[in-house]
């Protein structure tokens, strides 16, 4: 990871609100992060922490209404994606940013062939003819490890297994050679062996194609294996962020620490029962005025109940570039 390189994607102060009948839900609150070229950023956090909403906000994929991106800046290739027109945004989606969703069983259109669904973005963004797009689609299918690619173009999604469909989704996302690939829990719906295969595939493609990747997952084990940096989200906020080795060896946020303790360890002796984090994640019905984790935090003190902690650097580098945490509390000896 080239440390000093200019980021391909730079997100600042992103705020997304859902306006529902029972009031507003502040799903994303001032999220800032950046992605350097070729880097793999892991995003973790429990269900409902705002991972998907954050990533879909970036490229305008949330249905509006009810979603509303209230504030922020999303810089990609010199453009602020939150300021450009819907049509300009359509030119970015699928071309500069590829997206892979969680559920491969429903993410492909059942009535079109796999081939035509891969060809669509090629024709739309790269201006290829149908014949050129078909050749390229076959190459892409081969690239994601589907044997007999040329013949398989004519198959329909239901003729593919879940793992193969996810490979197709990856082929679609990578079709136009994007700068950024966003993978939203791409292996959660697959069984363990297929998960490992997809992971290997992405590692391999990253070597070959060199795009930057945002990988959303619940599985910290996966993050440890492939990510360069990790971003931990809680209650629609980034609570800790840093290079993977640093964050794993020296987690600072009580939530990150708790998360790390929930990973079962194969090596080393068993340190008692596997831990669970007690309590429920908050539903953010208003912009936070206190730490969202306070109710479940063992270290919470007065300040935590009245002030939402800002992210502060833990090393010499500015927030977002090195290791930072959004917490009032410091572990002893730190």
């Amino acid at each position: 990871m080239p440390d000093g390189a200019l980021p391909v994607l730079d997100v600042r102060g992103l705020k997304t609100v859902f306006r529902t009948r029972s009031g507003e839900i502040h799903a994303v609150n001032s999220v800032s992060f950046m992605l350097r070229p070729g880097e793999l950023l892991g995003v973790v956090g429990e269900s409902g922490s705002g991972k998907s909403v954050t990533m879909m906000s970036l490229i305008g994929l949330l249905p509006s209404p009810p979603a509303e991106v209230r504030a922020g800046q999303v810089m990609l290739g010199g453009q602020d994606l939150l300021r450009i027109s819907p049509r300009e945004l359509q030119d970015v989606r699928g071309a500069k940013v590829g997206f892979v969703f969680q559920d491969p069983m429903t993410s492909l259109n059942p009535v079109f062939t796999v081939g035509s669904q891969i060809m669509e973005p090629l024709i739309r963004h790269m201006g290829l003819t149908k014949a050129q797009a078909r050749d390229r689609a076959a190459e892409l299918l081969a690239l994601v490890g589907i044997p007999d690619a040329k013949a398989r173009l004519k198959a329909y999604p239901h003729q593919f297994s879940g793992g193969m469909r996810q490979r197709v989704m990856i082929a679609i996302a990578l079709a136009c050679d994007p700068d950024v690939l966003i993978a939203d829990e791409p292996t959660t719906a697959l069984d363990v062996t297929i998960q490992a295969q997809i992971l290997e595939l992405v590692k391999d493609l990253r070597q070959k194609l060199g795009m930057a990747i945002i990988w959303i997952t619940h599985d910290l084990g996966v993050i440890a294996g492939i990510a360069d940096r990790v971003m931990v989200m809680y209650g629609g906020q980034v609570v800790e962020q840093g290079p993977v080795a640093q964050l794993f060896s020296d987690p600072r946020h009580p939530y990150t620490r708790a998360l790390l303790k929930t990973i079962p360890s194969l090596t080393g002796e068993r340190s008692g029962r596997l831990q669970v984090i007690e309590g429920q994640p908050p539903i953010m019905t208003a912009a936070p005025t206190a730490c969202p984790f306070r109710a479940r935090c063992a270290h919470a003190f007065d300040l935590c109940h009245v002030e939402n902690p800002a992210r502060r650097p833990l090393d010499a580098r500015p927030v977002g570039e090195g290791h930072d945490v959004a917490c009032h509390w410091s572990p002893e000896g730190a």
Binding site: Q90, R93, F99, F101, S107, N109, E120
Partner: peptide, 25 residues
């Protein structure tokens, strides 16, 4: 449906999303 979100994520024009992907189904 999820496939509609996929079509949008591919950057297809609204016309294509609605009149091709959604309508056909």
């Amino acid at each position: 449906m999820d496939y509609v979100r996929t079509a949008r994520a591919k950057g297809m024009r609204e016309k294509t999303v609605v009149l091709r992907h959604v309508l056909r189904n």
